[in-house]
Nucleic acid binder design. Sequence first.
DNA 1: ATGAAAGCGCTAACAG
DNA 2: CTGTTAGCGCTTTCAT
Lengths: 329, 329
Amino acid sequence: MATIADVARAAGLSSATVSRVINNHQYVSEEKKQLVYQAMEALNYFPNASAQKLRSKKTNTIGVMIPQLTNPFFTYLLEGIDRIATEHDYQLLVCQTKNNRFKELHFLNYLKAKQVDGIILTSIENDWATIADYHTYGPIVLCNEYTYQMLVPMVRLDQQEGAYIGTRHLIEKGHRAIGYCFGGNTSQLTIDRHAGYRRALNQFGIPYKKDWIFRDAYDLEDGKRVFRNTLEMDNPPTAFFTGSDQVAAGIVKEAISHGFSVPGDISVIGFDDQPIASVLEPTLTTIKQPAEEIGSNAMNLMIKCLENHIDPSEMDIQLPLQLIVRQST
Amino acid sequence: MATIADVARAAGLSSATVSRVINNHQYVSEEKKQLVYQAMEALNYFPNASAQKLRSKKTNTIGVMIPQLTNPFFTYLLEGIDRIATEHDYQLLVCQTKNNRFKELHFLNYLKAKQVDGIILTSIENDWATIADYHTYGPIVLCNEYTYQMLVPMVRLDQQEGAYIGTRHLIEKGHRAIGYCFGGNTSQLTIDRHAGYRRALNQFGIPYKKDWIFRDAYDLEDGKRVFRNTLEMDNPPTAFFTGSDQVAAGIVKEAISHGFSVPGDISVIGFDDQPIASVLEPTLTTIKQPAEEIGSNAMNLMIKCLENHIDPSEMDIQLPLQLIVRQST
DNA sequence: ATGAAAGCGCTAACAG
DNA sequence: CTGTTAGCGCTTTCAT
């Protein structure tokens, strides 16, 4: 493989000039520029990326931490991130954490190793204090999940409001026994959603029951499991607020397969507004999160951080969420 | 940020020894090894990835070309690739081509730039001759899509058989007007599926009609569009073979919303067996592709290529596909 | 078992 | 506008 020196030799110029042409510097005469292009062409030359990164201390790569590649919410997030990354010639190193805090830690070290210029987190598996340490080595942008412990660049939704609206909707439909499903961690997002659920309950004088709280609910199978578990309860929920359309779909499917009618006997509300929400029968009432937009905003924030012109007022972007009423409630 | 020289100094050793410890070389005394570990710890040292790559000419990174990040079939492929990559400490640079051949070309150049050690293609947008040129710069593994023009490492399914089985199933259900939906390109996979469809038609003496061929069908919306288009036809299909569950779901949804019954009036068969196939009402008959397994096999092949011990007989891996009969046919 | 030294391929002062 | 030169941080002979 040809090197920059080979090109310089072939063009009868110095490697510095070749480098200038590669990097589109000004002050290179059109004549020599053509000479360089011809030589590069003739030698089938392509600059070595590692050498460029080592020397320039810029990788043009962003690490994106994703808990689950097969969860559509996160792929839409990724789609938004990728759209902006492509526009600005950044590459994406995709890091699947599987909700494992050690994997998250492992990937965070890419920042220290200068393998990436910055990291976008779409979930948070470690204490914030642990993550904050890495901030010295490059920008960390939060997207979807967030923290109040520090002012960091983040793109988020009012999750408490989302859970409140959803729960209130179920109450207004006449339900008083409302199950609550969520993932496993103790992130701020989780805390806030939980608070929104309780706020709605409180407002309507409905007692909070621990039995109605279901954790470790991430996907369709988990939703089915949750519903099966309620079958043995003395006082089972008649409605479910869930943290994801996948889980909601599982509950709906399992309820129907056990002979219940949705929304006749059981009401279910999802979260995200993934494609599955419109495909399910009955169609799923849900809280819409603009996933693609969250992602694109996060990547834009990242670019601003990298280019050092970020106004503190832009650090915390909040996007709207929206109740979409369909047939499942 | 500390460098290897700093660590060497702090440990009272040479940088060569530190390097040996980092790379787990033999012939380093336990004593010095501990010294190095302590120094690395104290200085919060992490080796610079670009320097390692430049010097060792190994990036430990694989480029994965994906047409659509939001298409579940490809994310399951990616999931399989990622599982094996993680096990072997490889990183993934995700390249979304959006079915654009120029983007594909752009990403192929990462091989020339030694930014990745190899590339896994999950779709093919350029002529095979164009892609074959890049093979000099590192291994290219095909996964899902394939070619007969050259013996390259690939993991594939018998797509002609898949389309044949699916079409025959529709014929056996009594249909003689069978629509055929596919994506846009002219890859071998597309050609083979088309051939399988025609073979089934031929076998049962059913004429092939150009009007029943629908191209550019990739997702749910495309499926809806296809069905709407048949509404104006004199002799519309009563059944549809599709290249993806997404498209099939679109057809089913649109048919039902226009008052047709599925499978009463219209039968639809999908491809992939994505989660949506079991969630749809009626549930979707489909040709199951073991996506995760295709991906993991591809990454395993890649690793073998990189480690130079690949037997030509292992180059072409063929996995089974399977007709899954549900309610939509 | 350890160190000295060369060099991977490139960029960026600096000088002219 | 162009060339000379000094590294970026690491690995790897080659000695010892």
